[in-house]
Simulated scan of single mutants.
Amino acid sequence: MNRLLPVLGLLVAINFSSLQAQDDDFYIFLCFGQSNMEGFPGIPESEKGPVNPRFQVLAAVDFPEMGREKGHWYTATPPLSRPPAGLSPADYFGRALVAALPEDKKVGVINVAVGGTKIELFDETTRESYLADAPDWLHNISSAYNKDPYARLIEMGKLAQKDGVIKGILLHQGESNTGDKEWPAKVEAVYQNILHDLDLDAVDVPLLAGEVVAADQNGKCASMNEIIRTLPETIPTAHVVSSEGCPDGPDDLHFSPEGYKMLGTRYADTMLPLLKD
């Protein structure tokens, strides 16, 4: 029995060391969705930096162009998702948060998004059937996450929890589900799965969902915003971020860099009072 004591002591030391490594002042946010969360290609030189090193990104893919390796933290210089993405709402969400929070707080984001996808790709019960009929370009994009972006989000989330505390989930998706009245229920299923798989409590980890390009910008999917605005009726801890007045690009589907800046700042403005609560 006495020979077990050194082993038990070692295990206690390891567990204590692991607990000590987690930084309660490192606020982490999961970001997922389709192309507007991914970041539409095109980053103005003025937006490439310098970025406050208190704002970090956990690389969800190997990203040799940026000198990033999957599963490691880096200063959050855009793009935050994968090559060849661009500026996204996550960029100015993080920049605005670190500017507003005390100097001892850090912000980290994990961005796993797939351009053009429906929400079904993030639900493990519908992913395979959805991909079975998906076009080649969607297979090509999702292959960055081994065609299972939800699993990658959870994998990275578990890694991040060793370093900090998950404080919220950011969603920007809906264009490919335009008109789908079941979308709020589908989002709820994904949200509940995330909470379960990462052992999180909805009260502590709200869901922030951004509207798609608005009607005042001639958004092609603007009608989806009526459905997005109903999300808190299905998810009490959900908050909708308005896209009204956020400039878009020529295709009327993606935001312009200025639009991403405005929308990302609105995500941060929505999150800040929730952090104080």
Rank of each mutant, 00 (worst) to 15 (best):
residue 3 R to F: 15
residue 5 L to Y: 15
residue 9 G to L: 12
residue 9 G to M: 05
residue 9 G to T: 14
residue 10 L to H: 11
residue 10 L to Y: 08
residue 18 S to Q: 12
residue 20 Q to F: 11
residue 22 Q to W: 14
residue 22 Q to M: 12
residue 25 D to Q: 15
residue 27 Y to H: 15
residue 28 I to T: 13
residue 31 C to H: 10
residue 32 F to E: 04
residue 42 G to Y: 07
residue 42 G to E: 11
residue 46 S to D: 13
residue 49 G to D: 08
residue 50 P to S: 04
residue 51 V to T: 05
residue 52 N to H: 08
residue 52 N to A: 02
residue 53 P to A: 02
residue 54 R to M: 02
residue 58 L to C: 04
residue 60 A to M: 03
residue 61 V to C: 05
residue 62 D to H: 11
residue 63 F to V: 09
residue 64 P to C: 00
residue 66 M to R: 05
residue 67 G to T: 12
residue 68 R to H: 15
residue 68 R to E: 13
residue 77 T to S: 12
residue 78 P to N: 06
residue 80 L to W: 02
residue 81 S to L: 07
residue 82 R to T: 10
residue 83 P to Y: 11
residue 86 G to I: 01
residue 90 A to I: 08
residue 93 F to P: 01
residue 95 R to P: 01
residue 96 A to R: 09
residue 98 V to N: 02
residue 101 L to E: 07
residue 103 E to L: 13
residue 103 E to A: 15
residue 103 E to F: 10
residue 103 E to V: 14
residue 104 D to E: 15
residue 105 K to M: 13
residue 106 K to I: 07
residue 107 V to T: 07
residue 108 G to L: 08
residue 108 G to A: 08
residue 108 G to M: 03
residue 109 V to N: 00
residue 116 G to V: 01
residue 120 E to F: 15
residue 123 D to F: 06
residue 124 E to F: 15
residue 126 T to W: 03
residue 126 T to A: 09
residue 126 T to Q: 09
residue 127 R to P: 03
residue 129 S to L: 11
residue 129 S to Y: 05
residue 131 L to W: 08
residue 134 A to F: 03
residue 134 A to G: 01
residue 134 A to R: 07
residue 135 P to R: 09
residue 136 D to R: 07
residue 136 D to P: 06
residue 139 H to T: 09
residue 140 N to I: 15
residue 142 S to F: 03
residue 143 S to D: 13
residue 144 A to N: 13
residue 144 A to K: 14
residue 147 K to Q: 14
residue 147 K to H: 13
residue 150 Y to T: 04
residue 153 L to D: 06
residue 153 L to R: 03
residue 154 I to M: 09
residue 156 M to Q: 13
residue 157 G to F: 11
residue 157 G to D: 06
residue 159 L to S: 09
residue 160 A to G: 07
residue 160 A to D: 01
residue 163 D to V: 15
residue 165 V to F: 10
residue 170 L to D: 00
residue 172 H to K: 12
residue 172 H to F: 14
residue 172 H to Y: 13
residue 174 G to Y: 10
residue 175 E to R: 09
residue 178 T to V: 13
residue 180 D to T: 03
residue 182 E to I: 09
residue 182 E to K: 08
residue 187 V to T: 12
residue 189 A to K: 12
residue 190 V to F: 05
residue 193 N to C: 09
residue 198 L to W: 04
residue 203 V to E: 13
residue 203 V to R: 14
residue 204 D to S: 05
residue 205 V to R: 00
residue 206 P to I: 00
residue 207 L to V: 06
residue 210 G to Q: 06
residue 212 V to F: 02
residue 213 V to I: 06
residue 214 A to Q: 00
residue 216 D to M: 01
residue 218 N to F: 14
residue 220 K to E: 06
residue 220 K to T: 15
residue 222 A to K: 00
residue 225 N to T: 05
residue 227 I to G: 03
residue 232 P to M: 01
residue 233 E to V: 02
residue 238 A to M: 05
residue 239 H to L: 12
residue 240 V to Y: 04
residue 243 S to V: 00
residue 243 S to P: 02
residue 247 P to L: 02
residue 249 G to T: 01
residue 251 D to F: 07
residue 252 D to P: 12
residue 252 D to S: 11
residue 253 L to E: 05
residue 254 H to Q: 00
residue 256 S to Q: 06
residue 257 P to R: 08
residue 259 G to F: 06
residue 262 M to T: 10
residue 271 M to P: 00
residue 273 P to L: 09
residue 274 L to Y: 03
residue 277 D to M: 10
